[in-house]
């Protein structure tokens, strides 16, 4: 473990708390893509299947449990508790276009052609693009509640912080993980536009609004 990865993981935790807080205080999941949240459940379940057969550490164990449980809880909030506040007509990204290529790529580019290994690879590729329905929705509506932008910023910071973590590991350890690195770079790249508006508007106290 190094500082970058720890901060990345904490940022990931924070993003989830911000999202749950947003839904519960505004009593609404307006502006949140159900599809993106459903993709995250898929990502976590596929990746953390290794909970059943591989022990890493107490930290690793509890984080995995937390990510699975909290993502399922968010789906529950959106699907049942605050269902009327979700508008499917603006959440229309075709997730097949993300899941399909992630399946195909994971069958071609993986470290080992084994079931759980391919599931892990699939989860990495899917996570890289899982934010797209959310960003697409943001683009469509052209605006976002400030708390929602904090959620997205924390989520983007999580992947961004993994990059110095990989650089650090490259120099201090003998192992590199090119699949995670390439997918992580793509994932962080998707946030660049968002970060630009976040830094130039939201952090200056303005509302998140995209130019018409």
């Amino acid at each position: 473990m190094n500082l970058f990865r720890l901060l990345g993981d904490l940022s990931h935790l924070a993003s989830i708390f911000i999202l749950i807080h947003k839904i519960q205080t505004t009593r609404s999941c307006r502006g949140i893509s159900f599809q993106t949240q459903a993709l995250y459940v898929t990502v976590f379940v596929a990746r953390y299947i290794d909970l059943f057969f591989r022990w890493i550490s107490l930290y690793n164990f509890f984080m995995k449990i937390f990510f699975i449980a909290s993502s399922v809880y968010i789906l529950y909030l959106m699907k049942y508790r605050y269902r009327p506040t979700h508008d499917p007509s603006i959440d229309t990204f075709k997730v097949e276009y993300l899941v399909g290529p992630a399946v195909v790529l994971s069958l071609i580019f993986n470290y080992k052609f084994e079931f759980t290994e391919i599931l892990w690879t699939f989860s990495i590729y899917l996570e890289a693009v899982a934010i797209l329905p959310q960003l697409f929705m943001l683009q469509r509506t052209g605006e976002a509640e400030t708390i929602t932008t904090h959620y997205l910023a924390a989520l983007g910071a999580y992947r961004a912080l993994y990059i110095p973590n990989w650089i650090y590991r490259y120099f201090t350890e003998d192992v590199v993980d090119p699949i995670a690195i390439v997918a992580g770079l793509v994932q962080t790249g998707l946030y660049l536009d968002f970060f630009y508006v976040y830094f130039t508007k939201v952090l200056q106290g303005q509302k998140f609004e995209l130019p018409a």
């Binding site: 993981d9 470290y111 490259y170 590199v176």
Partner: peptide, 10 residues
Amino acid sequence: EKAERAKDEL
């Protein structure tokens, strides 16, 4: 270096 999955990462 060898290319391998970093199993301890989340």
